[in-house]
C-alpha cells in the first residue's frame, strides 16, 4: 500500500479557529438493571484527537452512541457547541456499507446530507481522493478489504462535513499497513479542523495519534488529560493499573 500523499482538503468550509469544547455532564444509562454509563463527566479540548481508552465493557461505544444522539441517556446531558449541532459523524466498529458501489455509497451519504445534486459528483471525487479510493470507485463496496471498507466508512462520515468525527476502534483486526493508511487519513481529517474522538485499546495508537486521553472504566470517566501527562503520570488508580497491563476486574 503506497503511503497516501497528503492533500489539501478543499471542501472544508471556513470555521472558527477554536470551537468551544464538548462537555458531558452526569451521563447515566442503565439497561436491564445494569448501569452501563454511571455518571460520565468530561470536558473535551477543542480540536485534535481525544482517545477514549479503557477495557472492554467500559462503556466507550455506548458513550459514542449517546453523543451521536442514537441513544437517549437516562440522566445527564451532552453539551454540543451550537456550530457542531447536526454536524457529528460516527463510524461504527463494524461499519455497514450499502449494497452498492463505493462511489454510490458516497453519493447516497451526500444525498442524505442534503448536498445539492450538482455538487455531489465533485464532492465524491474529493472524498475518494481523501480516502485514497479513487481506483476502487466503481467496485461493490462490500467487496473491498477490511481496511478499504473502514476508509470508505470514514470518508462517508465526512460527507456531511462534520465538526466532530467519532471513530469506534477503526483499526481493530487490521494489519499494520491498513492501520497506517487509516491513521494517515485521521491525521488529515484533524488537519482540516475537525475534532476527532477515537475509541481504542491500543496505547501505541494513542502515542501516534492522540492529543488527549480520556480513561473510561465501569461506565465512568476516571481521568482526562493530555497524552504525555496521561501516559507518563496517570492520576487514577484504574488508569495506572491498565497502563501497567493489569486486567481490571
Amino acid at each position: 500500500m503506497p503511503d497516501p500523499t497528503p492533500r489539501v482538503i478543499p471542501f472544508q468550509p471556513p470555521r472558527p479557529a477554536d470551537p468551544p469544547a464538548l462537555r458531558i455532564e452526569g451521563l447515566c444509562l442503565s439497561r436491564s438493571g445494569a448501569a452501563l454509563l454511571n455518571g460520565v463527566e468530561m470536558t473535551l479540548s477543542p480540536g485534535g484527537v481525544t482517545a477514549l481508552l479503557g477495557p472492554n465493557g467500559a462503556g466507550k461505544s455506548l458513550l459514542l452512541r449517546v453523543i451521536a444522539g442514537l441513544i437517549a441517556p437516562d440522566a445527564g446531558r451532552v453539551i454540543v457547541p451550537r456550530a457542531m449541532q447536526g454536524r457529528i459523524g460516527l463510524v461504527l466498529q463494524r461499519p455497514v456499507l450499502l449494497r452498492r458501489s463505493v462511489a454510490a455509497n458516497l453519493r447516497h451519504a451526500l444525498a442524505l446530507a442534503r448536498v445539492p445534486r450538482r455538487h455531489r459528483a465533485p464532492r465524491v471525487g474529493e472524498l475518494l481522493a481523501l480516502g485514497n479510493l479513487e481506483a476502487l470507485a466503481d467496485r461493490p463496496a462490500r467487496r473491498l478489504s477490511g481496511g478499504e471498507q473502514q476508509r470508505l466508512a470514514i470518508i462517508r462520515a465526512l460527507a456531511a462535513n462534520p465538526l466532530l468525527l467519532m471513530l469506534d476502534e477503526p483499526t481493530a483486526h487490521l494489519d499494520p499497513q491498513a492501520t497506517h493508511a487509516i491513521e494517515a487519513l485521521v491525521a488529515r481529517v484533524t488537519e482540516g479542523g475537525t475534532k476527532v474522538i477515537l475509541v481504542t485499546h491500543d496505547t501505541g495508537q494513542v502515542q501516534r495519534l492522540a492529543d488527549e486521553v480520556a480513561f473510561l472504566h465501569q461506565g465512568r470517566c476516571h481521568e482526562i488529560a493530555g497524552k504525555s501527562a496521561f501516559l507518563t503520570h496517570p492520576e487514577s488508580a484504574a488508569a495506572r493499573a491498565y497502563l501497567t497491563g493489569k486486567l481490571l476486574l
Binding site: 442514537l70 450499502l98 444525498a111 456531511a160
Partner: peptide, 14 residues
Amino acid sequence: YDETLRVLGANRFD
C-alpha cells in the same frame, strides 16, 4: 442498516 442510516442523517423517507 438502522444505526448507520440514522448517523448519516436519514429521515424515514430516506
